[in-house]
């Protein structure tokens, strides 16, 4: 886990202030997309090695959802942005 996340609103903060939701690249299927699509959306996740975009919630800070791009191998944080800035819902 990365230890310092540069929140775009609060500045650098330790990971303990955040809650990780998971992969930010998943899109919610249509209500009638069928069981397989919904099963995949709810339960199936990749376990990527390297760069990965995730939704993080700054629970103990500004309480905003962020998109954190980090390297799962080196723990480097590449980019942090507010989730609403990309039009993503969280």
């Amino acid at each position: 886990m990365a230890s310092l996340i540069a929140c775009p609103h609060c500045g650098p903060r330790p990971k303990e202030e955040f809650t990780v939701r998971g992969d930010a690249g998943i899109t919610r299927p249509a209500p009638d997309a069928g069981e397989d699509a919904w099963h995949a959306y709810v339960y199936l996740r990749d376990n990527p090695r390297g760069r990965h975009k995730e939704h993080w919630h700054h629970t103990s800070g500004c309480r905003r959802w962020l998109v954190v791009e980090r390297d799962t191998m080196t723990h480097t944080i590449h980019a942090v942005s507010d989730a609403s800035a990309e039009g993503a819902t969280a």
């Binding site: 609060c10 303990e16 202030e17 103990s60 800070g61 500004c62 309480r63």
Partner: peptide, 10 residues
């Protein structure tokens, strides 16, 4: 001002 954790307390 800054909202943060002091130990485990927000």
């Amino acid at each position: 001002s800054a909202m943060t954790l002091i130990g485990h307390i927000s």
